[in-house]
Design a protein around this nucleic acid. Structure first.
Length: 276
DNA sequence: CGCTAGTACTCAT
DNA sequence: GTACTAGCG
């Protein structure tokens, strides 16, 4: 999913951090992020159908770095890839990129082909399976989330199983997670988002806001599983919710006022937002 | 100023 | 998934 501009707007709620400040604690890892980055480095082998372990080694190297700083890793993988319209579209796009890459590759244009191979990366359950095999050997905790890894990570943090999350996906903020490490590099440096610091955000005031209102702001600004309202981003979404916490009222007053043409598509959007 | 849409990037040599 | 930015209302 991902909320456009959320990390930028919440910059005052983040600060540089070294992973060692979580020494002795358990950190949840968004497995998809590392799978994708790992696969990025061996996209050619994958596209050509060659056996490669490089994406497995990439993740193991990251895990070793964490353990070096005495972090207990808990890897969470996506389970049910919810077959939505967007995902099928993404897979179609990926296949087209692989095809174009193979065409260039067979012409001897290996460098040009790589760009398309990288764009064509599609993380399948096999990738996770290969990694899980190694995690088992090393006695590293992992779980395959029944739905989305996001929701599973949020649950694990809420229940106290993990004390923070490593990811690149701003959706973890929407899901209510408290401590999230973004942009973690090989040396253990990253940016820590701390939910307790939301009151320090300067773009707009979030004081007195509940997690639920915050979530509504994000959804109203546009998200993955529904076509967003044109012209409404985070700032305007915040303005509407500041005026009225009732999203249904916003839909009736603001939205219709700004978007008088209520066609079938907008009607679907309104249904989803009002139910959320 | 806020939002959209386009481009470039993730690895690792 | 992210960041950055030209163009537009």
């Amino acid at each position: 999913m991902g909320i456009t501009g959320l990390l930028t707007v919440l910059k005052e709620a983040q600060e540089p951090v070294h992973i060692s400040s979580f020494k002795g604690q358990t950190l949840g890892i968004d497995g998809y992020v590392w799978l994708h980055k790992g696969a990025f480095g061996c996209s050619q082998e994958i596209a050509l159908g060659q056996d490669t372990r490089r994406y497995v080694n990439y993740i193991l190297k990251k895990i070793e770095m964490l353990r070096h700083f005495q972090i207990v890793p808990f890897v969470v993988f996506d389970g049910g890839s919810l077959t939505s319209k967007e995902e099928t579209e993404m897979e179609r796009e990926a296949k087209k990129n692989i095809q174009e890459g193979l065409r260039l590759f067979n012409m001897g244009l290996k460098k040009e082909a790589q760009t398309y191979f990288q764009r064509g990366i599609n993380i399948t359950p096999k990738f996770a399976k290969d990694v899980i095999e190694e995690l088992k050997k090393k006695n590293i905790q992992y779980v395959v989330a029944p739905y989305e890894a996001d929701a599973q990570l949020a649950y694990l943090e809420r229940e106290g199983t993990i004390q923070g999350i490593i990811t690149e996906d701003s959706d973890l903020i929407v899901y209510g997670c408290k401590k999230i490490i973004f942009k973690l590099d090989d040396a253990g440096n990253g940016m820590l988002f701390d939910r307790e610091r939301l009151g320090q955000v300067r773009s707009f005031s979030l004081r007195g806001w509940t997690d639920e209102t915050f979530r509504k702001m994000c959804i109203l600004s546009g998200c993955d599983y529904l076509s967003s309202v044109h012209g409404v981003g985070l700032k305007r979404s915040h303005k509407y919710l500041q005026r009225s916490r009732d999203i249904k009222q916003i839909a009736e007053n603001q939205w219709i006022a700004f978007h008088p043409q209520i066609d079938s598509e907008n009607d679907e959007i309104r249904r989803v937002i009002c139910s959320g």
